[in-house]
Design a protein around this nucleic acid. Structure first.
Length: 268
DNA sequence: AAGCCGGTCAACCGCCTCTAA
DNA sequence: ATTAGAGGCGGTTGACCGGCT
């Protein structure tokens, strides 16, 4: 018996989402929360696959998303995490607040990869390219096979064992002065590094504090207040882009809901 | 102005993992 | 222990856009 398709392919719309569809999905999730994705399209009145809805929400509509290019700090963190975790984009993304695996994966493929190559670093192994070339000359194909993208397959359970040697990660080794300083500050923070391995607390707070680049914030006082609180940007803040990008009114989404929540929280 | 080309990124596809029955 | 369904993940695709000729 073959596996059932994740959704009824007949009558399922594909391709870019329209503003109307976004609106429906947002409204539905705001009202009902994230529940069974399979049921979402039907309940929300969308002719979409449940998976497609989930993807659209997590990668684009989620109000806690940061928009825009990755900052220098984020980029360096991605490089370092990639050196340790390989292409586990979701794991990497979980360490960067407001960033999605898809976003990081795209950024890696379009920006970081090239940047590393330009710097003479192999984006897969994080080893210097010339060093690799010479080692390839000396090692047999069989040996190469025995080390398939080594860093890619770093088991998280091995992480603690490897942490010592990783404390001098290839990425760190090959970073320019400014970047290595930045990374050193990351790596020398034991609790921070432990959190990388233990899969518990994400780097959210730490990174958020480090990331001094305002997202769309001009009022420094507000920004400072946010940093003090280990602030995760309010839904309202992060929904602002929606209003910029799409021709929606805030009331169309029932975003007052968030205002209510926030004002309640402020009262406490 | 039109065509080409490369870069970017949203979205899809198919496999994997987890979990409940 | 097994199985099926649902969600999650990573690789890939293709539409779109801006720059160049």
């Amino acid at each position: 018996m073959g596996r059932q398709p994740c959704c009824d392919k007949l009558g399922v719309k594909k391709g870019p989402w329209t503003a109307e569809e976004d609106k429906k999905l947002i409204n539905f999730i705001l009202t009902n929360g994230q529940c069974c994705w399979r049921a979402v399209p039907k309940l929300a009145g969308l002719r979409r696959c449940g998976k497609s809805c989930r993807l659209r929400w997590t990668n684009y509509l989620r109000p806690d998303l940061k928009r825009g290019l990755l900052t220098e700090v984020e980029e360096q963190l991605v490089i370092d995490l990639h050196a340790r975790l390989g292409n586990r984009w979701s794991k990497i993304a979980s360490r960067l607040p407001g960033r999605t695996d898809n976003e990081i994966k795209n950024h890696w493929n379009t920006h970081i990869k090239k940047k590393l190559i330009k710097m003479g670093i192999d984006p897969i192994t994080h080893e210097p390219l010339n060093k690799q070339a010479s080692s390839n000359e000396t090692s047999s194909p069989a040996e190469n096979l025995s080390q398939p993208d080594n860093n890619h397959e770093v088991k998280e359970t091995d992480a603690v064992v490897n942490s010592e040697e990783n404390s001098r990660s290839p990425a760190t080794e090959n970073s320019s002065g400014e970047e290595s300083l930045l990374l050193d500050s990351l790596c020398s923070d034991d609790s921070l590094m432990n959190s990388l391995w233990l899969d518990e607390t994400p780097l959210v707070e730490a990174l958020w504090e480090m990331d001094t680049t305002p997202i769309a914030e001009t009022e420094t006082e507000t920004e400072n207040t946010k940093n003090e609180m280990n602030f995760v940007p309010s839904w309202e803040d992060n929904c602002a882009w929606l209003l910029d990008c799409q021709d929606f009114g805030i009331h169309d989404f029932g975003f007052n809901y968030f205002n209510e929540i926030e004002s309640k929280e402020n009262q406490h």
